[in-house]
Amino acid sequence: MAASLFIICGLLCSSYALAERFIVGAQNLTYFPHYDFESDVDKGVGWAILEAFSEASDHEFIYVNLPIRRLQMELAKGNIDFVYPDNPRWYNSITNTDDKTFSLPLTYTVTGTMVKKDKAGKGIDSIKQLAMPLGFTPVNWQQRINNGDTQLTAVQDIPQGLALLQQERVDALDLEYNVARHSISRLSRYDDITLDLTLPHNEIPFSLSTLNNKKVIDELNTFIATNPTLIASIIEKYEIAYLSELYPILMHEQGLAPDEVWSKEAPANN
């Protein structure tokens, strides 16, 4: 951590000399294809869009990995210029959403609940043990956790979560669909795991946020709005799937009618 902060401070000093250089604080989690800022080769779809914007605008972005809970703290201190990913609906006790400026979504994520295929479609009451990556907040599960209906197990990384699910030490894994699919493609022994549409899932935008660089966010928004074909080609390259594509496929596989699909408006799932 000390080394990371030393790098941040050094880069911050340099950024004063070059106004077009900015430091992006990024989650230090392997969450590919959305992001993997520890990679020296390909940091994911969010990075690819920011790099395309960098080329068009001449702004330079330098990425620093930080624990999820520390990102907002370093943003408040001024040690980083931007946070990615961020979302105005995410709660943190450090920065106020009203004080921040958020970009248009760089991409959307399908946050959902993964189960073994033979356990799909059994509904939320069947989930007694839920795994989730450390640092994430179980928004759609919080009431059940508070009531003791579901117990939460934090995992250090995605392979650990998949292993617990495969071994049936947990009933489900709260994980983004595209991340799960990518991980499963590299770990073929987990290919019997799927997104259960009867369990909590949402489509959530990933944005870039800042406290003090609204002008750059405005430029990024203009870039996104005026380059839909380029943005779409980047998203296609990373094979990002959205719920509109997944619903007909998974509903057919799981034999579900529309009224059997989980809805956050349903009282039992609040």
Results as ranks from 00 to 15, higher is better:
A257D: 14
T101G: 07
Y108Q: 01
L66A: 08
L165G: 02
G25R: 05
L199F: 05
S93K: 15
V64L: 15
Y63T: 03
K119W: 08
E168R: 06
I234N: 02
Q156V: 13
E20V: 12
D218I: 02
D259E: 11
Q156K: 15
L246M: 14
A56W: 13
V83Y: 08
I231R: 06
G78A: 09
T95K: 09
M251N: 07
F37Q: 02
L195M: 10
W141F: 07
Q129P: 05
I94G: 11
N65Y: 05
T137G: 05
I231S: 08
N87T: 07
L164N: 03
D81Y: 15
E176L: 03
L211C: 12
I62T: 15
A17H: 12
W47E: 08
D218A: 07
N270H: 12
L220A: 04
A48R: 04
I224W: 04
E239W: 00
G135S: 14
A48T: 07
I249H: 15
L165Y: 01
L18M: 07
E265Q: 15
P138K: 13
P67G: 11
T210Q: 04
I80S: 05
K215Q: 15
A19P: 12
K264P: 14
S183Y: 00
L175M: 13
V115G: 09
F61S: 01
V83N: 08
V64D: 02
I145N: 04
P85I: 10
L243S: 06
L130W: 02
L11N: 06
C9G: 14
H34G: 04
V179K: 00
M1S: 10
Q166A: 11
N87V: 08
V41L: 04
L256R: 05
F37A: 02
R189M: 06
V110M: 08
E55A: 12
L243K: 05
L152Q: 10
L195T: 02
C9F: 14
D99P: 03
G10K: 06
T107W: 00
G112W: 06
L152F: 09
G46R: 00
A26M: 15
A131I: 04
T226L: 13
F206L: 03
N213V: 05
I7D: 06
E265P: 13
D98R: 13
N227E: 14
D36P: 05
L11V: 10
N147C: 11
V41C: 11
Y177E: 07
F61R: 05
K214A: 10
N270Q: 12
L165Q: 01
H34F: 05
N269G: 14
A76Y: 15
T101H: 08
N227H: 09
F82C: 10
S57W: 11
A26I: 14
V261D: 10
I145H: 03
